[in-house]
Nucleic acid binder design. Sequence first.
DNA 1: GAGAATTTGTACGTATGTATG
DNA 2: ACATACATACGTACAAATTCT
Lengths: 75, 75
Amino acid sequence: MTVDQRDPTPLYQQLATILRAEISSGKIADKLPSESYLQQRHGVSRGTVRRAIEILAAEGLVYTIGARGTFVRQR
Amino acid sequence: MTVDQRDPTPLYQQLATILRAEISSGKIADKLPSESYLQQRHGVSRGTVRRAIEILAAEGLVYTIGARGTFVRQR
DNA sequence: GAGAATTTGTACGTATGTATG
DNA sequence: ACATACATACGTACAAATTCT
C-alpha cells in the first residue's frame, strides 16, 4: 500500500493512514523505518513523511527519540 | 519583542511564545497579522511563522479559516 | 577511542493550488 | 482580472545526536 498522487486527500494524511494501519496490523511492531526509507518507499518528500509521523505522534501512537528513530508506543 | 537568532530555542517556538503573550495581553485581539507580515516583522521564514501558528492552533488559542486568516478564539 | 554513516531536528526557499476580497 | 492569504508539496542545507565500522 502506498500513496496515491491523484487522490485529492493530502499526501501526508494518506501516509498517516497507511502507517496507522500497518501499526495496528502489527506489520510495524516496534520501530518505524527511517524517514529517508519511507520517503523513497512512498515516493514523497521527507517533509511529507514527517508530517505523517507528527499526526501519529499527536495521536499517541508513536514517539520519536532524537537521532534514534520513531517507535511504536507499546500497550 | 521579537525572535532571538542566537537563542538555541527553535525559532517557531520562540515565535509561538511571543504570539501567545501578545494574545493573552490583548495586544492581538481578534485577527492575527498575515503570515507574510509576521515573517518580515520577526525576520523568519514563512514556514517558521506557520509552525508557530500551528502550535497555537493545537492549543486551541487560535483557528485559521481557509484563505481568510488566523483568528483568536474568543472566550 | 576515532571517524564515517545514519537519523532526526530546524530552517530556508520555491512552486502550485484554492479560496477570498 | 488581480491581489491577498492559506494549504500542500517539493527541494536544499546544515546541526546535533546516535550508531556503526
